[in-house]
């Protein structure tokens, strides 16, 4: 629980003239659940894109397992052990569940596929029943399992989750965060990007709050939950 698996060191990202991320520093240590909280247009998605190498930061470095990945291709970043569960799940709906899972393991080739599939089935027994079905025919909750399974097939060091609560019924959101806790207990570091601050902080070890591209708060989850500023601004509580 000490060596950082994912680090942002003084990241600045620009989209043309727009300054999206401003001196962002994040570090995520092995075994943690860390959440990044922020509203619309706060730079959450840009942060994820920067991690995955889809956007190159203007200054600063992204480190995965202590190795500088700034400017690397997405393929290299994924190969280094980062994998993502995209917002709204975004399964390949017309491919079968099995094919979706196999795509998750794309970079590793076929090796160890069976064992990994078994691991996913242990985590989500429902997925096993649905293997031959087109992913688009699954229910929302099942799709979420497959989306997480697909990301886990890459055997990631750190799992990025983009708005896991987005577009899901409350009961599914709860289920979803249970899943995150479960895979974290199984040994995967998780970085959750979320608008739903209360939910995210309830399972996270630490949290960062991003406002218009700047980290304004960084603390342990309990501290953030107790922070009066946080309570009024993000947790929707009236003083």
């Amino acid at each position: 629980m000490n060596e950082p698996v994912l680090e942002f060191r003084g990241i600045n990202t620009h989209y043309g003239p727009v300054h999206m991320l401003k001196d962002v520093d994040i570090d995520i240590k092995a075994g943690e659940i860390v959440c990044l909280l922020g509203g619309n247009a706060s730079g959450k998605t840009t942060t994820l894109k920067t991690i995955l190498g889809m956007v190159t930061p203007t200054t600063g470095d992204v480190l995965v397992n202590g190795e500088v990945m700034t400017g690397s291709s997405t393929t290299d970043v994924v190969a280094a052990g980062v994998s993502m569960v995209p917002e709204n799940r975004r399964l390949f709906k017309r491919m079968t569940v099995l094919e979706n899972l196999e795509i998750g393991a794309y970079l590793r080739g076929g090796e160890g596929l069976e064992a990994d599939l078994e691991r996913i089935f242990d985590l989500f027994p429902r997925v096993k029943e649905r293997l031959g079905q087109k992913a688009g025919t699954l229910s929302g909750g099942e799709q979420q399992m497959v989306a997480v399974g697909r990301a886990l097939m890459a055997r990631p060091q750190v799992l990025l989750m983009d708005e896991p609560s987005m577009g899901l019924a409350p009961v599914l959101v709860k289920q979803n965060f249970d899943i995150i806790q479960q895979i974290n207990e199984a040994g995967t570091t998780v970085f959750v990007v979320e608008q739903n601050a209360k939910m995210a902080l309830s399972i996270a070890d630490r949290g960062y709050v991003l406002v218009t591209g700047r980290i304004v708060l960084a603390d342990t989850a309990e501290a953030l939950l107790a922070n009066p500023e946080m309570r009024t601004a993000y947790l929707g509580e009236v003083e």
Partner: peptide
């Protein structure tokens, strides 16, 4: 099906 996600899968 989904170019962006395919890219994110490596």
């Amino acid at each position: 099906e989904d170019e962006s996600v395919a890219e994110a899968m490596g």
